[in-house]
Design a protein around this nucleic acid. Structure first.
Lengths: 253, 253
DNA sequence: CTGATTATCGTCAGGCAGACGACTATGATC
DNA sequence: GATCATAGTCGTCTGCCTGACGATAATCAG
């Protein structure tokens, strides 16, 4: 039976991406500048329409690859070098969220390590990493004159806030924080991820005891590095565990 | 701009409901028997099409009311007598999940107290509460001859499993377990909810100490009841807290 | 060599959780 | 009414985890 608009209303379905990374000690999200109305010239989350024969996760992975060159990471396979964690976040379907027509957006959350290389296939003026605080604070650090001070297009501020909150809570009880790290990383680098995502300072000694004592979280590779300065630090890779037991606890409010 | 199918593919959007309750010490879900092809005669989750001008949450609340008479509960308002917790669960959009056309289903999770009254507006042969184990076990407790042994229609087994898993994990760190209880309930009744949802036995003494010691979880009403037999138990109402600190910990695997 | 920086190990006290004993207040049964 | 079964409530004890923080180790910049 083909789609018959006389029986059920027709919807357009999109995927929008909250792509998070940690750069220079702060949590950043990928934003693209809109080239068309509505919200022309405003910043928005990357996204696009789901194709007629495409699964939602496939559409999200395709958009992610187009914007960043990152591959979505299938948890059952070994982690390729430029893989990102990708999961469904939530779906937004307010009838008025897009002034043009009825659009339902299935938002996805992607967590990526800091990308040293520029992104593939996007010009630098229309794609950028921005600290989530400045994207969510409407009169934020950039002041009213900056184009970054304008709120995100559509309901993307809400979607971004939901994605950030998901990331903040999920690194508590899962090993997802390692998705922000390169394949090999130190305990200190992992701690800076937690500090950036939660926006708090953590005690390095207790953090070290905790993560090295949680079974399956980290496996030592044997190597060391001094790329953070100071005493050489052991390198680790993410262990097999996805759920942390005991969990990492976010400090009191 | 009206919807133009030559530019973007057209989707039908539905909401499906995982409605959970605890009856006779076991976790049960609402199932409806399909009256039409495809999957005619099979059990499925309740659901329906989202209307042209309807928000996703509104569509879910409407379906819930139609099937059960329950009102969706706005957390900012006092709890009405027959309110259920309702939240978005996840969205399922495999291109082949409905053989008729391209359907994206936004699944929602509802948690309701045990309903002593029969449900409004549904005939008893086509709507029933079934233990989630029997709905998910394809050759389960009812044997191959029972119609309940047939797997759920569409991808509803997967949706139900996701909903059950969400409920199991969410009662750990939130006060959601009270959504399964009547407005006034005892510590023992709340414990039986946890035991049914998790499928484990909990120590009554430690459980009592824990829930009464968690700030904001329970507020005593002053009354007592003996409806469970034995010594009269204090009655409580759900407190204002939505997040439990410290959380209830599910016993080891 | 000295100091700054980061990593790592150790210690200690407080709190929470699991195991479990003891007691209390009801209804059911003889 | 005595006894029993049932459920609720209060305590105790012990081990583990956590947060606070001292101490030491290994590098780099001057």
């Amino acid at each position: 039976m083909p789609y018959d608009p006389s029986v059920f209303p027709a919807f357009a379905v999109t995927v929008d991406l909250v792509v998070l990374t940690v750069r220079r000690h702060s949590l950043c999200a990928l934003a693209v500048r809109r080239g068309e109305a509505p919200f022309k010239g405003r910043w928005a989350l990357p996204g696009g329409f789901v194709r007629a024969d495409e699964d939602l996760a496939a559409a999200a992975a395709r958009e992610l690859a187009e914007e960043t060159g990152l591959l979505a990471h299938d948890p059952t396979l070994p982690v390729p070098p430029n893989a990102a964690h990708l999961e469904q976040l939530a779906t937004y379907g307010d009838p008025k969220r897009d002034p043009r027509m009825r659009v339902v957006s299935v938002a996805h959350l992607a967590l990526a390590p800091d990308l040293p290389a520029p992104r593939a296939g996007g010009d630098a003026h229309s794609v950028r990493w921005a600290p989530v605080g400045s994207l969510l604070d409407q009169d934020g650090a950039f002041g009213r004159d900056s184009d970054l001070a304008a709120p995100l297009a559509f309901d993307h501020a809400r979607i971004l806030a939901d994605g950030v909150e998901r990331a903040r809570s999920k690194i508590e009880y899962s090993s997802l924080a390692t998705a922000f790290c390169p394949q090999e990383f130190t305990v200190g680098e992992l701690r800076r991820v937690y500090e950036a995502v939660w926006g708090v300072a953590l005690d390095p000694r207790n953090f070290h005891r905790k993560v090295t004592g949680t079974p399956g979280f980290l496996v030592p590779t044997g190597g060391t590095t001094t790329r953070q300065g100071g005493r050489p630090a052991q390198l680790f890779r993410a262990g097999g565990a996805t759920l942390l037991n005991p969990p990492m606890l976010r400090p009191e409010v």
